[in-house]
Design a protein around this nucleic acid. Sequence first.
RNA 1: GCUGGCGUAGCUCAGUCGGUAGAGCAGGUGACUUGUAAUCACCAGGUAACCGGUUCGAAUCCGGUCGCCAGCUCCA
Length: 580
Amino acid sequence: MANEHLESYRHTAAHVMAQAVKRLYSNVKLGIGPAIEDGFYYDFDLEERINPEDLARIEKEMGKIIKEDLPLEREVLTKDQARELLEKENEAFKLELLEELEPGEEVSIYRQGDFFDLCRGPHLESTGKLKAFKLLSVAGAYWRGDEKNKMLQRIYGTAFPNRKELKKYLLQLEEAKKRDHRKIGKELDLFSMHEEGPGFPFLHPSGVAIWNELTRYWRELHRVRGYQEIRTPLVLNEELWHQSGHWDNYRENMYFTRIDEDNYAIRPMNCPGGVLIYKSRPHSYREFPMRVTELGLVHRHELSGVLHGLLRVRSFHIDDAHIYMLPEQITDEVLGVIRLAEEIYNTFGLKYRLELSTRPEKSMGSEEDWDQAEKALGSALEKRGLPYQINEGDGAFYGPKIDFHIEDCLGRSWQLGTIQLDFQLPQRFDLTYVGRDGQEHRPVLLHRALFGALERFLGILIEHFAGAFPTWLAPIQARFIPIGEGHVKYARRLSEELEKEGIRAEVDERDEKVGYKIRQAQKEKIPYMLAIGDREVESGKVSLRHRQKGEAGQLEFSRFKEELLKEIRERKLESFLEDK
RNA sequence: GCUGGCGUAGCUCAGUCGGUAGAGCAGGUGACUUGUAAUCACCAGGUAACCGGUUCGAAUCCGGUCGCCAGCUCCA
């Protein structure tokens, strides 16, 4: 089914749902009801609360409407005619939409039986053409997405050309739920959340093992690319935040505290602290581009309703970097950052797309600065021939940005990396360097992050790998499973040999059957399981099992060690074992 | 923050009409001595999120607070 067809198909489903709701409830006012990526929704304003249990009732009514096979008829009206019609029906929201149509624009409505809707179309010929649909959830949604407006009740549903495809989609939803990082995080004992600190994640030992691998990798990458690492304080005097512009532009998201008689703020961003280091001595153009990283912990007050496991938190580590440079170095530096980002995302097998965000309403700086910065970012992308989307008005308050968006297994898009050009901070903090001419000049500042937030990145990785991390990231990389009590000692010796090489190995010494220990290891998604019994002690081989590939036969222990080390060192996504 | 739903043992979840809390897994102890996804037995585990109300009596009904979930708005 072509996309346009699927869209009108789902849009028709939305109309049928609206008709059903109007039949079942009195005094219903319609909001909007479009087709969306995986289905459709419709917003309603009505006195009664629609509960999840009511969905079945609405579905039943929709079934009736489909059975009635009502033709959908398009009518073109004048604005006055449409207004009269909508006023009669008391459709206040639709009237608002009508008044916003361009004077010359055609006004069309679609009718099906006793129902009509102001709508551009197109639609299916009749309601009987709908074959498979399901209502999924109810939620509140502000009229026109503005929190100052009234909240309407939105019903989400999905529709497919046939039962089979619908079933497939619903199964997919189930599968996605199994990968939820909050569930897996608990099962694998990676992290936890507590009422005592909503939005402030607690990382457990296994979570920290992954974290440490991520940061080790991150440091390796940066060291060879000429970055220098710094650390700056979490709490800084409020005055600094006035100077940086955060007070005027970011105050609602900040936490404040007092020390003695003075006001302090907990940092929501790392840059002002880094700027203080820059200012601690004079700089020459010869140092540029000067790349400075900080894996900095920030705190941001996010609305309670948006918190979501590790993917949306109130405290997180940004893998920040600030690059101080000459204007003519912008393109090269931006391209360098993009190349680094590509390397990182490829290592994890993540797909991404690029967005260029421009000046937001709440922002600082001159028109010219913004214009120049936006052009610089855009031209860097074009120079590499990279496709990107423009996101009007979505930039940071101090400058435009290029964002890396990756898609998770639930089809949700997450912003990870970001490259932000900033002409404001250097001015506000009077940053200078001495140029070739011996005069002081203003450097250009570029902020960037590639993991984005480490917490969020970890959450995405959990879902991406469904907890089965590539060996280099796995909290436990190899577990020895002695068959009997007598094999424990030998297993320990082998395990220690691996541990000496930095491999995270351990022995399951419990008095349990092999099947039991295997099951445990499988559930923990440990990449390699090594059974050790009489045969292995005698032969010097290990009996190997891989969490995905199953039993893999026997292998010389020394050979296994080498292969494992290679797999870890090269940060491979796949096991060295051949597929059976 | 807003709308709706939810909150019972470490985890997953039962619990009829308001009558005083239960299972499996995990944990502890003991037995068994194990060859590739669950050995058996016993034991322990609870201020029912928290605070208040209604009632002879509340996990159950009502109100408030907190947290979680699905969205909205916002965002790394």
